[in-house]
């Protein structure tokens, strides 16, 4: 049988990787989204190239390359850090799209309206554009965060002692594999199902909002 104390310990590491990668991907995604929204073709190409490479290579390959292939000092030495960086890179491509889609969803008229009442760029962004764009971003970012959470399981392969790592080792020393892995799966569901519900709820709200604006 699995020991609940160990499950909690594994869950704690899983959450560290999840949140860590969320932070890394946010930091990377903002400049990527900005690059892809400029008028400069070179900058747009760079942004697109990043997104193409980040998601064209399977997440597990990213982790193996960072952990075994590269020598990035402490990052390549600590599995949890390697996982945070690798998964952060992959998720940055998706998150960049969320940000872009969010900004695109705000009609040009809103910016023009802000300009017509002489708001400065800063106020336009924070008082007019972002309040409308953020819900759209959050809806898809929440959905991507589910994929990210599931991808944290891959970190077990490079030896990060998260949920799956613990279950895998327990099975190696005689725990029932069907029961162990299924139990761990339920722990993931405890996160993916509620976040999925939130994402769908945000999504419907955003859609309803968009329809109202459009008519």
């Amino acid at each position: 049988m699995l020991d609940p104390a160990y499950i909690l310990e594994g869950l704690w590491i899983t959450i560290q990787i999840w949140f860590g990668a969320l932070i890394v991907s946010t930091v990377l995604a903002i400049p990527v989204a900005m690059l892809r929204r400029t008028k400069n073709p070179g900058a747009r190409f760079l942004g697109a190239l990043w997104a193409w490479i980040a998601r064209g290579i399977p997440p597990i390959a990213w982790l193996i390359i960072i952990f075994f292939g590269l020598s990035l000092g402490i990052i390549s030495a600590v599995p949890v850090l390697a996982a945070i960086v690798g998964l952060g890179i992959v998720n940055s491509a998706y998150l960049g799209d969320s940000i872009r889609a969010g900004l695109d969803s705000v009609p040009d008229g809103q910016r023009e309206g802000a300009a017509s009442v002489a708001l400065n760029r800063w106020d336009t962004l924070f008082r007019v554009v972002l309040p409308q764009a953020v819900p759209v971003m959050l809806a898809s970012a929440a959905a991507y965060s589910i994929t990210l959470l599931k991808n944290t399981a891959i970190a077990s392969i490079i030896g990060a002692n998260e949920l799956v790592f613990y279950a895998y080792n327990a099975v190696q020393v005689g725990a029932d594999p069907l029961l162990s892995f299924f139990t761990i799966g339920l722990v993931y569901l405890a996160f993916t199902v509620p976040v999925g519900i939130i994402a769908r709820w945000l999504d419907t709200r955003v859609r309803r909002g968009t329809v109202k604006v459009a008519h």
């Binding site: 589910i146 599931k150 944290t152 891959i154 392969i157 799956v164 594999p177 299924f182 799966g185 569901l189």
Partner: peptide, 13 residues
Amino acid sequence: IFRGFPALLTLYL
């Protein structure tokens, strides 16, 4: 269930 499980976990399962 199978959408919420990490694919790696389903593979191990």
